[in-house]
Simulated assay, not measured.
Amino acid sequence: MSFSSPPTDRVLARRRAIGDQIRAARLYANLTQETVALRAGMGLVSYNRIEQAHSSPLLDTLIRIADAIGVPLAELVREE
């Protein structure tokens, strides 16, 4: 199944919120983007694009990021 339509405003807003939550958790853990990317087994540019909400990560990638930061996945994707 392929989705060709652009993401809705709600999806973009959630993507930004998740990026913000990832950044906050990373900063709270006193980690650099480079450290998290390395621990998660991904490139720094790819990681940065997720934090900046320029790309939409796969669930597996979010799990690896949560593990790299040392937080539960739910902390990164919770809605407030």
Rank of each mutant, 00 (worst) to 15 (best):
M1P: 10
M1W: 08
S2V: 04
F3Q: 14
S4A: 10
P6D: 12
P6T: 10
P7S: 07
T8W: 01
D9P: 07
D9F: 02
D9S: 14
D9R: 15
R10E: 15
R10V: 05
V11W: 06
L12A: 09
L12V: 08
A13V: 00
R16D: 11
A17W: 01
I18H: 13
I18L: 13
G19I: 01
G19W: 00
D20R: 15
I22F: 00
I22P: 02
R23P: 05
R23F: 04
A24R: 15
A24L: 07
A24K: 13
A25L: 10
A25N: 09
R26S: 08
R26L: 02
L27I: 08
Y28R: 13
Y28H: 15
A29I: 05
T32W: 06
T32N: 11
T32R: 12
T32I: 03
T32A: 09
Q33E: 14
Q33P: 08
E34T: 08
T35G: 05
T35C: 09
T35E: 15
V36K: 01
V36Y: 02
A37Y: 07
L38Q: 15
L38V: 05
R39I: 01
R39Y: 10
A40S: 12
A40L: 03
A40Q: 01
A40F: 07
G41N: 05
G41R: 06
M42R: 00
M42T: 12
M42K: 00
G43S: 10
L44C: 06
V45G: 02
V45E: 13
V45L: 07
S46Y: 13
S46Q: 09
Y47Q: 00
N48G: 10
I50H: 01
E51C: 07
Q52M: 06
A53I: 00
S55Q: 14
S55I: 03
S56W: 00
P57H: 05
P57M: 03
L58D: 08
L58M: 10
L58W: 03
L58C: 03
L59G: 09
L59S: 04
L59Y: 06
D60E: 10
D60G: 08
I63L: 14
R64A: 11
I65R: 03
I65C: 02
I65G: 03
A66H: 10
A66R: 01
D67R: 11
A68G: 15
I69A: 04
G70S: 07
V71I: 09
P72I: 02
P72K: 04
L73A: 02
E75A: 11
L76P: 00
V77K: 13
V77G: 03
E80P: 15
E80G: 13
E80S: 12
